[in-house]
Design a protein around this nucleic acid. Structure first.
Lengths: 224, 224
DNA sequence: CTTGACAATGGACACTTGTTCACCTAAACA
DNA sequence: TGTTTAGGTGAACAAGTGTCCATTGTCAAG
């Protein structure tokens, strides 16, 4: 993820700051909970004293094409993302569809039901092209370095991590020297666990403390 | 199915046929619409004459751990998929979360908004762990053989394919000898295009006809 | 025969939630 | 100076929805 993202193509009608905030909250909410927020939940979030404040913004967002709703039905949103930068003109880079947060530093773990801290971008994987449900909470990390090449994970790949306790053999996202890296988690029968790089040129072993392991890598995604 | 089952093996807590049907409908509904169904919509789908019939099944599904709900709140489901066969005992196979159709043979293309034909299973990628929107249409193919190892795509990986015309350099899903395989699509300035395997031991080139290319591979997903 | 899951009917109640009407403020136009 | 657009307050209504109670019937296990 580069610092400047000229990718913010504003295909869609520009949103006001407030509208953007509302939209972001709605997306975030669904992301974390698996279902959409109700008008009143949005109202509460922004401390509006009337649901009509929300209604106004929703109407605006709908008119600008950012969202769709089913009139009268509860919690039935549909977000119209800028539809993947029409990756037709730019045949490189990820071509995508699903939106999952890319964390820069997840040292503090991933807070449940709270705005993610340390989000540095979003990974949009074509996976989402399919529809899908949810299990929120996972996040993605982009691989740097070649410490996992023996596991066929290369620099640039996105690794989907789910925060949970690791078991022997799992590849985990670990915080080492203030940096989040991927390592193999080894824990043999009764012995103390340790981490190991998957690159024969990195015969390194790493000790573990409570806060080291941030989650278990569950999938590798490489945009072609 | 069988008449006498002494003590059925319980993967997750067993679901009765009816319960499985309900669960499948709920998942499907969300998959297609992006939000969850209401009790009455489920009722209608199954032609129940009372919403309570649905309630009963939902209670059962909840007790068995298949779903979670927020009491009193509308359309707030959460599906607990068998959470990846606890892929600890069986360290192979996909461990997943998002649901995208896996096609066996996609010669006929992928029908829009219609039940996928030729679906032989479902890939549930942790990607979905994140929330997502939708853009349906893409599908997944599991890689067989080693013809793409030089592109770091290995047997067992799932490749997400989007039906569209390829461009030079794209990795495509191609129908060769009645089998769907992955190949590199090459088309140099004006010259006729051809396909090429990405394995130095397979210096094969393949000709192309209209129906060969089924789509462009957009991402590789490997369950860990 | 009895008990207990499983399936469903029917009707009713009450909370959730979307929607609307009336009215107000401030900034941007023109 | 009047008009429009964005943003909000307040209150109230009605439809969307989850939930519950009382009953009925089937079928396998004890």
């Amino acid at each position: 993820m580069d610092t400047c993202s000229p990718k913010q193509v504003l295909t869609m009608k520009d949103l006001t700051t407030r509208q953007q905030e509302i939209l972001t909250f709605i997306e975030h909410y669904e992301w974390r909970n698996g279902y959409w927020p109700s008008i009143r939940e949005i109202q509460e979030k922004f401390s509006f004293k009337s649901t009509n404040a929300v209604m106004g913004h929703l109407r605006a967002l709908e008119k600008k094409g950012s969202i769709e709703r089913i009139p009268g039905q509860a919690r039935t949103f549909r977000i119209n993302r800028p539809d993947a930068p029409e990756m037709n003109e730019i045949p490189d880079e990820a071509t995508e569809v699903v939106d999952i947060p890319v964390m820069g530093d997840i040292a503090a773990g991933y807070p449940d039901r709270v705005e993610p801290a340390g989000e540095i971008g979003r990974l949009q994987v074509d996976i989402a092209s399919a529809g899908y449900s949810s299990r929120r909470r996972s996040f993605a990390l982009q691989v740097r370095g070649d410490s996992m090449v023996d596991a066929e994970i290369y620099e640039g790949d996105m690794v989907v991590v789910e925060p949970r306790d690791p078991r022997d053999g799992d590849i985990v996202a670990a915080l080492i020297d203030g940096e989040t890296t991927l390592k193999r988690y080894i824990q043999k029968h009764g012995e103390p666990p340790y981490l190991k790089a998957e690159n024969k040129f990195y015969p390194e072993l790493y000790p573990i403390n409570e806060l080291t392991v941030q989650g278990v890598a569950k999938a590798v995604v490489r945009s072609l």
